Simulated scan of single mutants.
Amino acid sequence: MIYAFDTYYYENFAKTVCIAFRNWDSEKEDAIYSENMAITSDYESGAFYKRELPCILSLLKKIDLTENDIIIVDGYVTLDNSGKIGLGGHLYHSLNNKIPVVGIAKNGFAAEDKKRREIFRGESKTPLFITSQGIDVDEITIAVENMAGSYRIPTLLKKLDQLTRDNEN
């Protein structure tokens, strides 16, 4: 199963949603998980993971992961060639390096990273940025390119973003 996570921050709480689907080219999800929780830390430039990682780890308690599963985060897994890691890298380590984590970021990151790939989907002139740990980034890049949807953001990831921004439970 592939589990895609995203978190949106409201004034008093964070809403984390996970969409589960079987295949990279799936058009519909198999399950949706959602959880609201208190914001545990303020935004800290360069340490985004400190804010979002607790939200993802909390929601993961509702999911029975297996070593064949893959997790997608909205952001980066690796950040540069020196080994600095982003949210996805911290998540990968939190899961004892057993569950592959893929980062799909919408915005560029200035530092060079030989493990980062760019893809252009649909008619978009703006790339998505792909990073990973525990799974080959080139394999994942092809999988993300082939995700359902004809626009820059794959259909299920667009739905995920919309669900996190829906203030209803």
Rank of each mutant, 00 (worst) to 15 (best):
residue 157 L to V: 04
residue 81 N to T: 05
residue 34 S to K: 12
residue 63 I to A: 00
residue 46 G to W: 11
residue 115 K to H: 15
residue 3 Y to H: 15
residue 145 E to Q: 15
residue 162 Q to P: 04
residue 136 D to F: 03
residue 92 Y to Q: 06
residue 154 P to V: 05
residue 21 F to W: 07
residue 22 R to G: 13
residue 133 Q to C: 14
residue 135 I to C: 02
residue 152 R to S: 06
residue 83 G to P: 11
residue 2 I to D: 08
residue 103 G to P: 11
residue 135 I to R: 00
residue 98 K to V: 12
residue 85 I to N: 01
residue 93 H to E: 15
residue 7 T to Y: 05
residue 112 E to D: 13
residue 157 L to Q: 07
residue 124 S to Y: 10
residue 95 L to I: 07
residue 123 E to I: 15
residue 33 Y to K: 00
residue 129 F to V: 00
residue 40 T to C: 10
residue 11 E to Q: 15
residue 80 D to H: 01
residue 53 L to C: 01
residue 168 E to C: 07
residue 55 C to T: 13
residue 96 N to P: 10
residue 94 S to Q: 14
residue 139 E to M: 09
residue 23 N to D: 14
residue 118 E to W: 06
residue 18 C to W: 04
residue 139 E to H: 10
residue 103 G to M: 00
residue 152 R to H: 02
residue 14 A to E: 11
residue 102 V to C: 02
residue 40 T to A: 07
residue 9 Y to K: 03
residue 145 E to M: 13
residue 96 N to E: 13
residue 45 S to C: 12
residue 133 Q to E: 15
residue 71 I to H: 00
residue 117 R to T: 05
residue 36 N to H: 12
residue 16 T to L: 01
residue 94 S to K: 02
residue 16 T to I: 03
residue 96 N to A: 13
residue 89 G to N: 10
residue 76 Y to I: 02
residue 115 K to E: 14
residue 144 V to Y: 00
residue 147 M to F: 09
residue 5 F to S: 06
residue 54 P to K: 05
residue 153 I to D: 00
residue 39 I to N: 07
residue 11 E to P: 11
residue 52 E to F: 05
residue 166 D to S: 10
